[in-house]
């Protein structure tokens, strides 16, 4: 069996088991996994830039936020239906990524991290500043009309946990397909080439700035899709979702699961979510777990779980 077939089989199996999971999970975990799936999409978007292109952003909360506010504000103020609000959210994320990319991609390494961090901080302040529309930190609750939508002749109730779970799973499947396509295709190889040696890639005749910009665009759009879905499914938008915590989380999920692997961020999100959920039963300082995991990862497992597995056993893992 070729590597391509193996990887398709593996990721198909992952999606299938996630689909099957909803029939065996107790109610609370079904709700929790819905959140995890969306956060995993966010992490996959992040991974596209960090894992494959080698650009470490500390400001991805702004893309998550762009999706959240793009979708949420249009649904709240303009009464847009859920599918169009969702698309607008994704478009907002892509547009923001384009604008940020034109500026921030002129830097690399540490400077890129700080620039993205700062721009994201501006985004947070903007959600507070334009309080007439956003209600700032207090945020907005999605209207009744945005809790269901009709598509393909079927009315989908966002208040229904099973619908939500499967919509989140569909989004994850789309993100996974995009990532697989990137990872295995020409574009993905160009990204990795930029990551490994940008100067050499440029000398080989690639326009590395454009490659990086495309990666950021795609990454921003996927992250925004997660944000938009999070707003629409859980019916709330607020500025706390644009704080730095939401820039660090996808980094953490990606590092834990394995940067530069398609399924790594999903695994990382699962583990971290339950680790924090469990830790909060033992201690008030549940974020302590986040800190310890970060340090341990950097020290002992810099490639994350799937990264280590790929190194040792499954060389074909995309």
């Amino acid at each position: 069996m070729g590597d391509g077939a193996k990887s398709l089989l593996l990721h198909g199996a992952i999606l299938l088991s996630l689909f099957g999971l909803q029939f065996v999970l107790p109610e609370y975990h079904q709700l929790a996994v819905t959140r995890i799936l969306l956060l995993a999409v966010f992490a996959m978007g992040y991974n596209l830039l960090f894992g494959y292109t080698g650009l470490l952003s500390l400001g991805h909360a702004m893309f998550f936020g762009a999706g959240m506010y793009g979708a949420g504000l249009s649904a709240y103020h303009l009464g847009w239906a859920v599918p169009s609000a969702m698309l607008l959210g994704v478009a907002c994320g892509a547009l923001l990524a384009l604008l940020v990319g034109l500026v921030a991609l002129r830097t690399t390494g540490v400077a890129f991290m700080i620039v993205t961090l700062m721009i994201s901080q501006v985004g947070y302040l903007a959600t507070v500043y334009f309080t007439t529309w956003t209600r700032g930190d207090e945020g907005l609750v999605m209207p009744e009309a945005a809790r269901s939508f009709t598509l393909f002749g079927h009315t989908w109730l966002l208040t229904d946990p099973v619908t939500r779970y499967n919509l989140a799973l569909i989004l994850l499947a789309i993100a996974m397909a995009v990532l697989l396509w990137v990872a295995r295709g020409r574009f993905g190889r160009a990204l990795v080439a930029v990551r490994e040696n940008e100067d050499r890639t440029r000398m080989l005749g690639y326009h590395t700035f454009v490659i990086k910009l495309k990666a950021l665009l795609l990454s921003g759009a996927v992250s925004a899709a997660a944000g938009a879905a999070y707003a629409l499914m859980f019916a709330y938008i607020g500025s706390s979702f644009t704080t730095i915590q939401y820039s660090i989380d996808p980094l953490l999920y990606t590092l834990l699961g394995g940067a530069g692997t398609v399924a790594g961020p999903v695994l990382g999100t699962f583990l971290m979510f339950y680790l924090v959920d469990y830790a909060s039963e033992l201690t008030n300082a549940y974020l302590l777990v986040t800190g310890i995991v970060l340090v341990v990862l950097v020290l002992f497992f810099p490639r994350g779980i799937l990264g280590a597995i790929r190194e040792r056993w499954l060389r074909w893992l995309p």
Partner: peptide, 14 residues
């Protein structure tokens, strides 16, 4: 804090 209440309330309602 009001943002916690507002963020939690849709879930409570549903």
């Amino acid at each position: 804090f009001s943002h916690v209440v507002i963020g939690s309330s849709p879930r409570a309602g549903e």
